[in-house]
């Protein structure tokens, strides 16, 4: 099973961990077990995709691990920090300093230009940016000539690349990506996934991505399949067809 899988991390150590995580919604007859006892370690420096049918709990898993939602029972860690033991304020701080986000859409603050959006987490934290690193990331993402533009002046693909830059520039311990390609055309999707792949390969970034698109999941090192709040399967470096077949089997 999952815990027995040999780590293929570029850098050793754990980026995140969940221990017997349960998340219940509602009570009595209406009770829904979004997460039903998930235990899993996410090694640093890997690109992991979480897949599963609608209602499988994949988004809940990501949100609980990122400190956006709270487990009903169980524990989660980012690095060595146990989130489940922290106050709301402390979790906000962990999110700010150790976590990056790429959402499906509406990733950017419309009043800030691209540069300010990328700098947002660092600015909130009052940290200085490594200018060389900033230039490299924005150049790699081909947004270095769009830095003075407002989000409304950028295409959907450019917006998502700015969001990716925001996540990568801060060098968080882990980046959570929630359907990052959900609203992109296939070309922009491919570009964004390549950037994410590159961040893992070149900079040893850890990424945890939730998706329902086998085409996106195929860029991951590892695909974890979730159903009814439980991890049911996983695949190392799968092909798109293999993922597709596995998903079909789950329906």
């Amino acid at each position: 099973m999952a815990t027995e899988a040999p780590p293929v991390a570029a850098t050793p150590g754990l980026a995140a961990r969940i221990e017997d995580g349960r998340r219940l919604y509602g009570t009595g007859d209406n009770e829904v077990r979004a997460l039903d006892g998930v235990t899993r370690e996410f090694p640093a420096g890997r690109f992991t995709a979480i897949m599963g049918p609608s209602g499988s709990g994949k988004s809940t898993l990501m949100q609980c691990m990122a400190g956006l939602d709270r487990l009903t029972s169980g524990q989660t860690w980012i690095g060595d920090t146990e989130l489940t033991a922290l106050s709301e304020n402390a979790i906000t701080k962990v999110r700010r300093d150790n976590v990056g986000f790429i959402f499906q859409a509406f990733n950017l603050v419309p009043t800030l230009d691209a540069r300010e959006n990328i700098m947002l987490p660092l600015d909130i934290a009052g940290r200085d940016v490594d200018q060389e690193w900033f230039d490299k990331v924005t150049t790699d993402l081909r947004i270095h000539d769009r830095l003075d533009h407002r989000p409304s002046q950028l295409s959907g693909g450019q917006q998502q690349r700015v969001a990716a830059a925001r996540a990568i520039v801060a060098r968080p311990q882990i980046i959570f990506a929630d359907e990052p390609t959900g609203q992109l055309d296939s070309r922009s999707s491919a570009e964004l996934l390549q950037v994410m792949r590159g961040a893992v390969d070149e900079f040893g970034q850890t990424i945890l991505m939730v998706t329902h698109d086998p085409g996106a999941a195929r860029h991951a090192d590892l695909v974890i399949f979730l159903m009814d709040g439980k991890i049911v399967d996983e695949m190392e470096r799968p092909t798109q067809d293999a993922i597709f077949d596995r998903m079909k089997a789950m329906d």
Partner: peptide, 16 residues
């Protein structure tokens, strides 16, 4: 709402 949610997600505290 969404913009504030985003700011909160990327680490703006409640006080902020």
């Amino acid at each position: 709402t969404r913009e504030i949610g985003l700011l909160r997600a990327v680490g703006l505290s409640r006080r902020g």
